[in-house]
Design a protein around this nucleic acid. Structure first.
Lengths: 162, 162
DNA sequence: TTGAAAAGTTCTATGATTAGACTTATCATT
DNA sequence: AATGATAAGTCTAATCATAGAACTTTTCAA
């Protein structure tokens, strides 16, 4: 059955996930951020089935994360590029990578990481902080309704445990 | 058909996605981070089918992101709690939320956001920076093979365009 | 002109997801 | 002690998405 839509949820996380699609979406973005822009490029790098890729790219374009344009130098090609919104997703990918590199490779350590192109030093670890720059822990943070939140949502947040 | 595994990919992003599972995985984590710890709690908050939830929770536990333990005060209940690894995923959720809040709610603005529990001010926007604290842009960053990278992977990185 | 490359589309088999009814064990109430 | 309600799943059926591979169409290069 069709997967339930996350988009109705009044939550940026759900909306972001709806736009990206699924795991393939993240991996397509990863490749796009590091140079791939051709259909067959994604197929080769990811091993994704062609029909699946076509559907995922269509979704990313529909959600304004990528744009599709004909290659001016080769009429056979299409080029897929990140929009501004798409580029800004690199923070999400970095967060995923830092977590995966820390927790999913044992003592061998990570086989790859993002680094400053100039110095070739790893990008620094993301930290969550206060407006004043004080680092925050998960238990110091809560979810708060914004100005546009419907009353029902506010009640939910008031009822939050912990 | 069974979705292709991302786990073989020598990349922290793919490994993280494999562990989290899919969109439901992220949403389950979101709820777990803000107080939900019971099976029915997830069902009610997410509207997720019970069998799907059972499968997702099993996956999260198997990957060391959550733990399942009997409730000492009520023999009917199980409690699902985040492990250290699971808690550290909140950076990923925050990145997703900040992106979704910025790009997916139009001019209405976001209906909810993460805030400092004490001051009730929004957590500050995540910034990618250099080891020295200099902010970095996507085009100043590249993917680099780590010490444990197999030779084949190093060749791939050498061949990276841009 | 012939062949290869690029970007999809089409096809089939199979696994995954959904919704809702059902089961089992435990708790609370009479 | 019996009854009903809760909690956490399991089971079943229909529907959907995915994988894998072959196929089509357009464009380029030799």
């Amino acid at each position: 059955m069709r997967r339930k839509s996350f988009d109705d949820q009044a939550c940026g996380i759900a909306r972001a996930l709806e736009a990206i699609g699924d795991g393939w979406g993240f991996l397509i973005l990863r490749e796009a951020m590091f140079g791939v822009d051709a259909f067959d490029g994604f197929v080769e790098r990811l091993g994704i089935p062609r029909n699946t890729l076509a559907a995922k790219l269509e979704g990313l374009v529909a959600h304004g994360i990528m744009v599709k344009e004909p290659d001016p130098e080769d009429g056979r090609r299409s080029r897929y590029a990140l929009t501004q919104a798409g580029e800004e997703l690199w923070v999400v990918l970095l967060a995923l990578q830092q977590w995966g590199n820390k927790w999913r490779f044992g003592k061998k350590g990570a086989p790859s990481f993002m680094a400053d192109r100039a110095t070739r030093r790893a990008v620094s670890t993301l930290v969550v902080q206060d407006k004043d720059g004080t680092p925050l822990d998960l238990d110091e943070v809560t979810m708060i309704p914004g100005p546009s939140a419907p009353a029902a949502l506010k009640r939910i947040f008031d009822a939050l445990p912990e």
